[in-house]
Design a protein around this nucleic acid. Sequence first.
DNA 1: AGAGTGATTGTTGTG
DNA 2: CACAACAATCACTCT
Length: 161
Amino acid sequence: MTKKPSKMKDFFSASTENPLKIAEKEKLLKPKSTEKKMTMRTRQSTKSAEITKPMSPKELKPKPKPKKKEDSKMPKKPPTAFFYFLEDFRKEYQKQNPDVKSMRDVGKACGEKWKIMSYEDKVQYYDIATEKRAAFDDAMTEYKKRKENDEDQGSGDNYEM
DNA sequence: AGAGTGATTGTTGTG
DNA sequence: CACAACAATCACTCT
């Protein structure tokens, strides 16, 4: 059962003959104003030795990464279609640009290409992401249920094991 | 040596 | 309705 005909058919028909489906997905591609963030690189250290970077002000750099293991039960967000494309693109990008250093450049290239990519090409990843989201939703539902049950430990009637 | 950052867009969740 | 935060990855950076 590695194949999912129903899913495949949906995707196939959507990419070939079913503009309605495409239109539906187009909704996902809502026009968003791309706000460019001006992030200063810390690599200036090579040159300017007078200033390095504000360390204490975390507020300036809002990037808290509190790894809550406690919520490890919580289903982590599944990678979005873009990420799946990134996975593929990254391989090719590194192959074509072995000199490339980090993924930051890849991400930029990916983002650019992602925008120029045809919807039909993106729909593939969208489909995957959609499926993942379904699993995520299911996992989350169970997680919520489980959490509720856990919080509701008042019952304490774990007669089942 | 290890932990953190940065960059990309999309999706979800909350106010 | 709108914003915010987080999702994976991996070279590079700092302590």
